[in-house]
Structures are given as structure tokens and as C-alpha cells.
């Protein structure tokens, strides 16, 4: 089984500020780490490798410093790591990014057939949730998004349970395929001592746009179809009502009355 996990280096804090003038994230000074959802994706890849045997490769696209997230992947149990780094990628939206990752995956696939690509459901810095499904579209491989559980995986196929708005779905996918996962999928391990030591010595394979044979007309900010008009912290629209009362009994009675009044019960 050859599994490719896609990871991204993102700001560590979930408290990143947005520059009100430009509408962009203020990244300077923010500590970087692996996108939290990608930790769950990589953990699931490593768990599947431990169950079925094989290899976990990891790919990221990002500036030279994003190498750190690949070394971290080695510490978490990955075997080989690939970095797409080129000025041509700068400013790419999800359409361009997924194109580059798909081209990278194709190149890895040529050398060693990939069975499964696992992505986190979204990143904590852009939140789109597009990348997994878009990679599958570029590769024309089947896709399941919002996967919360691998029901069964063997040499032939993978059966997954995915979240939908109304409940869950069980899907069986043939290989090769792409899944993107939610955090219920796995419980990321603490990096082992061996992993930490291997991470420092690991070889990071670095590829440019030319190395992966990417069409430069599909890359970078000038070729993306997406235009960011404005970024902002969403306003919290809550209509919460605090129920007051002298004691629990009184508060409970008021709460029940309120729920009845609004026809919730």
C-alpha cells in the first residue's frame, strides 16, 4: 500500500490576526506548524501503513521554510517527503495549488504507484476544504470528502464513513482514490524519539514547476481564477439568552417556558 498524504505549513496559532487594511492574514511573527487537520490525515496514513504494510509519502507545496513540516512528517511516521517549491507557485489559489499537487502526485505515481491520497478536510488558514476534491478532479480519481472513519481497508478497496449535512454515508472506493478527513478519523501520536532523530537527517526531495511538468499558465497569482476581495473575521451572530434565576429549579422552569414560547418543545 502506497499512501500519499498532503500537508501544509500554516500559522500555528488559531488566533492569527487579519490586517484590516489589506484583508490579508498577518503571517509575520506567527509561528508555523503542520495544519492541524493534516496531522489527523497523516496519522491515519501511518495507521493504515502499520495495518497493511507499505509506505507513506508526504507532499507539500510552500516556500523553502515549509521543509519543516515535511521533517515533522518524518517524525510522525512518514517514509518519504516531497516539497514543491518555486516562485511560479506563489499566490496560487486552491485551483492552482491542487493542480500542482496533482502534478506532483503524478510524478510520484510514475516512480511508485499510489493507492490512496489522504488530505485534511481543510486548512486552518484558508478554510476552503477544496484541495482534496480538486486533486481527485485533476487526477480523475474517485473522491470522498469529510471522512470520519475508515470502516475497512485491504489490498482491493477502502470503505469509508463520511459526514454529510444530514448524517453519514458509507462509501466503497477502488484504488487509486482520494479522501479528505475530519479530526474524528484518528488520534495523532506523540512523535517518537526515533522519529524525532530521523526527521533531522531525512532527505527532502525538492521539485520546481518544471520538475513536475506543470503548465505555468495554471500557476501563481496571475493565473488563478480566484480573486480575494476581502478577508475578515466572521462576526459571531448568536442570539444567546442567559436565563437568570435564584436557583437551578427556577432557572430550569424559566428555560422550559422560554423553549415552549419559541415552540422548540
Amino acid at each position: 500500500m502506497h499512501i500519499l498524504a498532503c500537508v501544509k505549513q500554516t500559522p500555528k496559532s488559531d488566533n492569527v490576526k487579519i490586517d484590516p487594511a489589506t484583508g490579508c492574514l498577518i503571517r509575520s511573527g506567527a509561528e508555523s506548524a503542520m495544519n492541524p487537520f493534516d496531522e489527523y490525515a497523516l496519522e491515519e496514513a501511518v495507521v493504515l501503513k502499520e495495518q497493511l504494510g507499505g509506505q507513506v509519502s508526504v507532499i507539500t507545496m510552500g516556500p523553502p521554510a515549509a521543509e519543516n513540516v515535511l521533517r515533522d512528517s518524518i517524525a510522525r511516521g512518514a517514509d518519504k517527503v516531497y516539497q514543491l517549491s518555486d516562485m511560479a507557485f506563489a499566490g496560487s489559489d486552491t485551483w492552482s495549488t491542487s493542480y500542482a499537487l496533482a502534478k506532483g502526485a503524478e510524478k510520484i505515481n510514475e516512480a511508485q504507484k499510489i493507492d490512496l491520497i489522504i488530505c485534511g478536510k481543510q486548512t486552518n488558514d484558508s478554510d476552503t476544504g477544496h484541495i482534496g476534491p480538486q486533486i481527485s478532479a485533476w487526477l480523475n480519481w474517485p473522491n470522498a470528502a469529510f471522512v470520519k472513519r475508515v470502516v475497512k481497508a485491504d489490498e482491493q478497496c477502502i470503505v469509508v464513513e463520511r459526514l454529510t449535512e444530514s448524517g453519514t454515508e458509507i462509501l466503497q472506493l477502488p484504488y487509486p482514490c482520494v479522501i479528505s478527513v475530519v479530526k474524528e478519523i484518528s488520534n495523532p501520536r506523540v512523535r517518537s524519539v526515533k522519529g524525532r532523530m530521523a526527521a533531522k537527517r531525512a532527505e527532502v526531495v525538492k521539485w520546481t514547476a518544471d520538475d513536475i511538468g506543470a503548465d505555468k499558465n495554471k500557476l501563481g497569482i496571475q493565473h488563478c481564477p480566484t480573486r480575494v476581495v476581502k478577508s475578515f473575521s466572521p462576526q459571531r451572530n448568536t442570539n444567546a439568552v442567559v436565563v437568570d434565576g435564584a436557583n437551578g429549579k427556577e432557572k430550569a422552569a424559566k428555560l422550559v417556558a422560554l423553549l415552549k414560547e419559541n415552540k422548540y418543545i
Partner: peptide, 18 residues
């Protein structure tokens, strides 16, 4: 040595997180 330092790092993180 590095091995002992990483043992401290790993076990400290493990104790706090798990």
C-alpha cells in the same frame, strides 16, 4: 547526547498530551 535529549523531549510531550 541527542538521543537522550530527544528522549526527554518526546516523553515530556507525551506526558503532557496523553
Amino acid at each position: 547526547n541527542e538521543m537522550e535529549q530527544e528522549t526527554l523531549n518526546a516523553t515530556r510531550e507525551f506526558a503532557q498530551k496523553k
